[in-house]
Design a binder for these strands. Structure first.
Length: 549
RNA sequence: GCGCCAGUAGCUCAGUAGGAUAGAGCAGCAGCCUUCUAAGCUGCGGGUCAGGGGUUCGAAUCCCUUCUGGCGUGCCA
């Protein structure tokens, strides 16, 4: 907000002095307060094209900038930085603008561009694990932020309800069911799903239908078992996600896509585009022509189709539905898959820049300092539900959001179990609760004004107060950056910084003081606004903003 | 072998897309509650930004290279 104003003013000054400005210059908040409230590298960046040395160029700019009364001081430092010191009056004006905003930071930046966010998309063969939880927190937060800055995003979950793993699921269920009926199974097959949840499914099916399923023919029985297991497990996943605050606009079933014939369509498109061939009884896609490192099978020699084809078909439906940017959030083990889908986009003459893949690195689980190895097939998983019930939705979401996507995440179960201040979510929530508590008391003491007025802002002059205003002024731009670069973790960093400033402010200044009503009201106005800004952040992260703790 | 991602304080991680003296939390040490929530605040210690080279006014950030770790490299999904 303030950066934009300064950037605009610099542009005007450059034009007034007829200086060239083809290269991008920036306005930043320096990390050292000695270098002013804001600083710009304009003279450094633009000196070459104006054939001036940076210092001289800076002097010219500063001479002009000094005419502006919003600045307390403008100075040149280092190799040619221009540092701005803003007058309290300017901060107060900005603060008033922030205060007035109904939904601060909201913007129309995204122009309602339709963006499809596909995430989680876990196999429906078991409960969701913590990797899915990470994807859910990440994707959902990104969705919320993108929407807030004016994009038209949609969340989608692709259901892999066709293919080998579903057959194995049905077979696993049948074995557990037979066990229930007293059959000796012996060693449970290695490939089968070993998780306890399969036993629970068997018990449920048994309670509902007894041994009726065994009367069916082999094929009918498998279909029935599949259908039952899938609907149960999907419902389980849906409800876990809902508990986590994540709701999808769309659930797209691979099976349905196959039934609708989209798969054949895609095959024919690829054939028409002349990029398929037959080899060893299989049909191949010559993806190497389009940047992949080997060709890929589309139809196996047994006549069945690989995962790739319906998935490609699914991606094409996204485009047909009018989405102009397709974001997939994948686990780290799928990166080898990307070149072939990009290749297919190119082969079919779609712009593969539309497709954007974000990789979430894995979550390593630690218990007593030991890495816990997880395997869905062997039934050794920590589920998303476990996680939520142990650490709570807020802490879990925060933990996942606060780390950037392409970094490994070490999740220490014991640490999470402690549920104390080692988890920064409490630090932020505490700041919010603290403000609420102060406001409550001020209301009780009749210090809290009926209406905040612009004149009140004049009492805000302390460096800490102006710094808080500066921090708040930064949010709209930050949200846009987060949306553009798909980096929701930066909101967590921002929130921690704001919380820290608030805690420090609270510790050093009496906010409500009976002796000075005007000052009290100005400070209440400030923390009231901080509370609102924090609420926006919490809401965007899907975390609650408690009134008391 | 090839490909993708990563390597920043004892630990977990940020670092505003090339900026000035690299930050936070936790852990350690020392302080602060007759005053609005001590889940807080203040101070101290802690670094060859994995190593090396390059690009330029300027590099944790960009390029090259070596090392280390994770993952991938199925007619699995």
């Amino acid at each position: 907000m303030i950066k934009d104003i300064l950037h605009q003013q610099l542009t005007e000054v450059l034009d007034a002095l007829s200086l060239s400005r083809t290269k991008e210059f920036s306005v930043e908040i320096p990390n050292n307060t000695e270098f002013g409230d804001y600083s710009t590298n304009a003279a450094l960046v633009l000196s070459k094209e104006n054939k001036l040395n940076p210092k001289l160029m800076a002097e010219k700019l500063v001479k002009e900038l000094k005419k502006n009364k919003s600045f307390k001081k403008v100075e040149i430092a280092g190799p040619g930085f221009i540092n701005f010191y803003l007058s309290p009056a300017m901060y107060q004006q900005v603060f008033w603008e922030i205060f007035k905003e109904e939904e601060y930071g909201k913007s129309e930046f995204g122009n309602q561009e339709k963006i499809l966010l596909e995430f989680v998309s876990a196999n429906p063969t078991g409960p969701l694990n913590i990797v899915s939880a990470r994807a859910a927190a990440f994707g959902d937060t990104l969705y919320r932020i993108m929407k807030y800055v004016g994009f038209a995003p949609a969340r989608e979950f692709y259901i892999n309800d066709a293919g080998n793993q579903v057959d194995i699921l049905a077979e696993s269920l049948e074995l557990r069911l037979r066990e229930l009926h007293g059959e000796k199974i012996g060693d449970f097959p290695y490939e089968a799903y070993h998780g306890e949840y399969v036993k629970h499914l068997a018990q449920r099916l048994n309670a509902l239908e007894g041994n009726r399923v065994f009367m069916l023919t082999e094929k009918d029985r498998m279909d029935h078992l599949k259908e039952f297991a899938l609907s149960e497990l999907l419902e389980m996943q849906r409800s876990s996600l809902e508990k986590f605050g994540v709701v999808f606009e769309g659930w797209v079933s691979e099976k349905t896509l196959r039934m609708e014939g989209v798969v054949e369509e895609v095959l024919s498109y690829l054939t028409e585009a002349d990029c398929t061939y037959e080899k060893e009884d299989a049909i191949w896609f010559c993806s190497t022509k389009y940047g992949d490192d080997k060709d890929r099978v589309l139809m196996k020699s047994d006549g069945s189709i690989t995962y790739f084809v319906p998935d490609l078909a699914y991606h094409l439906t996204k485009i047909q539905r009018g989405f102009t940017q397709l974001i997939d959030v994948f686990g780290p083990d799928h990166h080898g898959y990307v070149p072939r889908i990009r290749a297919a986009f190119r082969a079919l003459n779609y712009d593969d820049n539309m497709l954007e893949i974000i990789f979430l690195q894995q979550v390593n689980l630690f218990e007593s300092g030991e890495r816990v190895k997880m395997s869905k097939r062997a039934g050794k998983i920590v589920t998303m539900d476990d996680l939520i019930s142990v650490v709570g939705k807020d802490a879990a979401r925060y933990f996942f959001i606060a780390r950037k996507a392409n970094a490994h995440l070490n999740f220490d179960l014991e640490l999470a179990l402690k549920q104390n201040n080692e988890n920064p979510v409490y630090y932020c929530q505490y700041a919010h609760a603290r403000i609420c508590s102060i406001i409550k008391k001020a209301r009780k003491d009749k210090v809290y004004p009926k209406h905040f007025k612009k004149e009140m802002t004049a009492k805000l002059t302390k460096p800490e107060e102006l710094a808080i205003i500066q921090k708040m002024a930064d949010l709209p731009e930050l949200l846009i950056l987060i949306a553009q670069h798909r980096e929701p973790h930066r909101l967590a960093t921002y929130l921690e910084e704001l919380a820290s400033m608030l805690h420090r402010y609270y510790a050093h200044y009496q906010i409500v003081s009976a002796k000075n009503l005007e000052l009290s009201q100005a400070r209440l106005m400030l923390i009231h606004t901080v509370k609102n800004v924090m609420s926006v952040c919490f809401e965007l992260m899907g975390i609650s903003a408690p009134e008391k703790m």
